[in-house]
Design a protein around this nucleic acid. Sequence first.
DNA 1: TGCATTAATCTGAAAATTCGATAGGATTTT
DNA 2: AAAATCCTATCGAATTTTCAGATTAATGCA
Lengths: 303, 303
Amino acid sequence: MLTLRQMRYFEALASARHFGKAAELVHVSQPALSAQIMEMESHLGVKLVERSRSGVLLTRKGEEVLARTRAILVEVDQLEQSARASSGTLEGRIRIGVIPTLAPYLVPRLVPHLRRVYPAIEIELKESVTSRLVADLGDGVLDAVIAALPLDTDGLATKPLFSDRFYMAMADNERTILMSPLTEDQVDVEQLLLLEEGHCLRDQALAVCSTAGKRRLVSFGATSMTTLLQMVANGMGMTLIPEIAISTEAARNAIRIVPFAAPEPAREIGLVWRRSSPRERDMDALATAISDCADDIIRAAAA
Amino acid sequence: MLTLRQMRYFEALASARHFGKAAELVHVSQPALSAQIMEMESHLGVKLVERSRSGVLLTRKGEEVLARTRAILVEVDQLEQSARASSGTLEGRIRIGVIPTLAPYLVPRLVPHLRRVYPAIEIELKESVTSRLVADLGDGVLDAVIAALPLDTDGLATKPLFSDRFYMAMADNERTILMSPLTEDQVDVEQLLLLEEGHCLRDQALAVCSTAGKRRLVSFGATSMTTLLQMVANGMGMTLIPEIAISTEAARNAIRIVPFAAPEPAREIGLVWRRSSPRERDMDALATAISDCADDIIRAAAA
DNA sequence: TGCATTAATCTGAAAATTCGATAGGATTTT
DNA sequence: AAAATCCTATCGAATTTTCAGATTAATGCA
């Protein structure tokens, strides 16, 4: 089997044109170098050097092998260098999954922010429901997921990012009179509009409501918050809206936002990654960036 | 120290995405592969793979190292292949030195002949005096030398090629009457024209002549046979001409060629190479080719 | 909870590599 | 000629590396 050691010794021999001096170059004894050269020659089935009194001469094959050897050694060197060059924080590609009830509000702020702070970043985004994202994370298709906690962390690490309070959204001209702030038992399940199955917000909305009367809930699944809120604006019912969505959605739908009484229901948004991933530092940096962005968005809505 | 073994195992691991299967691929046990991968990671200071329950995932660095590793392994493979590809007889470059009193007559025939019989040959020629050629041979600048034997073979191997008889060349209108065939004691050293110092033919000419009267020899060195024979044709004296030069030189100079009586003086032309050179077969083939060409040339002159 | 899978760890043995000493070959010096 | 010198190959012992097999630890699955 050809080895890099043989090639390194051979390169030294070709440079020094002398076994003893070559051995010094690579810091071994002359017999050690001699043996490796012989091993290399016997493995290749070719005489690489002519041993004569007036030093060492390379054969034709030796010259050819030397050229290839030097090229290989240079590439090995480059491999070592590039591997050791510790890539800084958030450099290169990072593939992030985001849940649909968060992505439209967070991503337009987050991506420019990341690009500004980490110019070498290459972001790939995927929007899907939590279960799909977690599966992709496990398969190595994604590096990180932004989703609602808690979740079934099996081999996954998570870090809380921010708390996203729920509000009730209803049509601006809604006749129903509600106390403000709202208490959970005032929510009429029959009027509650929900996202389709699979969205965590659907489950969270149901959790907020009193368990009574769930049988009668409107089995009408919207596919996005925007669709849902258009339905709300058209008087078809009401829905839970996370705080982060308010500034965007209130601007384009004629809706009224009603807060809940304390303790206000909320979803906890977190960052998720494979526990086996070595990108701890990237995850820290990403988490900070997301928290900052979310705070900005929510503060903007409050103002 | 990074090794090819590590790189081969890593390549297998990246392909199989499974330690056990990768170990099978490279025909070692799983702990052996595991250890090499860990060694590689620790040497590079980088995590190359994520070990998770659902198989093995490459990190970003791992992907990069894999790409470089594959490139290197391919090149190593090519090195082995090309080294093992036993180059046939007289393929590739061969650097040949020829003495000046032979080159102008032999080379124009020899080179086309070699090119015809060995299409893959790349010939480099150098014309110089024997001492220079032998020095270049020792330095590895030349692979073979065609010169007059015997010579001081120090670390050199030689093979006789052909015998090149001497004739006396004189002006066509020379008044001097000589017996034909000539005997050596008839040669008048005062009339003998010689090549400059260093040419073996000069020494051979002197050896042919009776040692008497060497004090009076014309110390007039020509630099080539052609020059010398032009001087002869102009009546400035006479000189020894080797048989191989006759057909060419007689055609362009008004000279008379007189043979010697037996035992005819001659020079022995031989092929010389470093004894340490592994190109024995090439030398055999070259010797045969030269002998054939020389015979052709001399036979053409006789006809 | 036990069972299966997977990679890491441990252990002892085999193989490769090393060094130092020395031999063999040739050249150069004395 | 003999001695000294230079250079590579060879030998033997010590060290390091690599290995297989058994086992362990961690995780996932039923």
